Simulated scan of single mutants.
Amino acid sequence: MTDQGFPVGEIDTSRPHPARMYDFFLGGRDNYEVDRDAAQRVIDVFPDIVPTTRANRRFMHRAVRHLAASGIRQIIDIGTGIPTAPNTHQIAHEVSEDVRVAYIDNDPIVATHAGAHLLGAGNTGFFLGDLREPESVLQHPTIGELIDFDQPVGLMLVAVLHFITDKEDPAALVAAYRDALPAGSQLVLSHATSDFHPAEAGLDEARDVYKDRRATATVTTRSHAEVLPFFDGFDLVEPGLVQIPLWHPQGGAAPEAEELRHVGTYGGVGVKR
């Protein structure tokens, strides 16, 4: 099921969009020249954006497997982005085909790909919505058809909260979603940080690209101490809120120090009390 919310003809190709830039960082082709120009400028000043983005995708894969393996059978994925296989439902269905996934994004171009990439396996739905409007998201008919709030839910906020400014109060937004979830639900969250990069690494210049190119969202990096409160009301799954390659690394092998040096993102999973 899909609900685009407004005409796909309203896709704004005059300004770079973070979802399409993210697709470019992943090596995808579902982007426009304006996105490629902005993304390449980010890469030029902050090359670590590519390994960071790809590490984030791998973190998402591991976290979804964790959700499904721990018994979660319904997932709300907010800030889905351009579909890049394997997607959330494909990973979850490797564990159980009973998992239902509601995808939400605010970019109409994501809707143009939803039918082919997100909705073909059943138990999935997509609609256009905005993280900053929790009541609208949670009351959407697609959520009503797929998600039973009497049972634990996996809420995914992967690489999306750093596009929410302090003025928009990301902690309050997370709390609004948290309060709608029953005990035993799980939050999967990752967030960009400057904790691992010195000033000369180019991260400040990369943030400026989003501003200078009039991107539809700016980037606010946050420290570990600033990200941790987003898990208020949740018990963190070991090893807690960590640099994403350190969260349940594939095969249990510790990541190489060289990999960690290039990844500027925290990630974690929490279980609602």
Rank of each mutant, 00 (worst) to 15 (best):
I78L: 13
V64Y: 03
A63E: 05
L161D: 00
V45H: 08
D232Y: 01
Q90H: 02
V8P: 02
T84Q: 05
I43E: 08
G129R: 08
M60C: 07
R54V: 12
T265A: 14
L173C: 10
E10Y: 10
G144R: 14
A183P: 06
D12E: 11
K211S: 10
V269K: 01
V42W: 01
D37I: 13
L119A: 10
N31V: 11
E258N: 12
E33I: 06
D30Y: 02
F6V: 13
F149N: 04
L189G: 07
E94V: 01
F149Q: 09
D150C: 06
G184F: 08
R15A: 10
F163E: 07
E259S: 13
P47V: 05
R20G: 07
I49S: 02
D37E: 14
D98N: 10
V209E: 08
L181Q: 02
T80A: 12
F196Y: 15
R178M: 05
A253N: 12
M1F: 14
D44I: 03
A253M: 14
V95A: 04
R273Y: 01
A39M: 03
I109T: 10
Q250M: 10
D107F: 07
F231P: 00
A257F: 02
A39I: 03
R207T: 09
V110Q: 15
L187P: 00
T88V: 15
A253H: 13
V271E: 04
Q74C: 07
A102E: 03
L228W: 00
F126A: 02
D179C: 07
E259N: 09
D166A: 05
F25W: 15
E135I: 11
F163Q: 04
A201C: 08
E145Y: 06
T80W: 06
I75E: 02
N56W: 04
V158P: 00
A114G: 08
V158C: 11
L128S: 12
R222V: 02
L189Y: 11
D204L: 07
R41D: 11
P198A: 12
L118W: 01
N31A: 13
I76D: 00
A215P: 00
V158I: 14
H191S: 11
V101T: 14
T216G: 00
D150I: 05
E33F: 02
D48W: 03
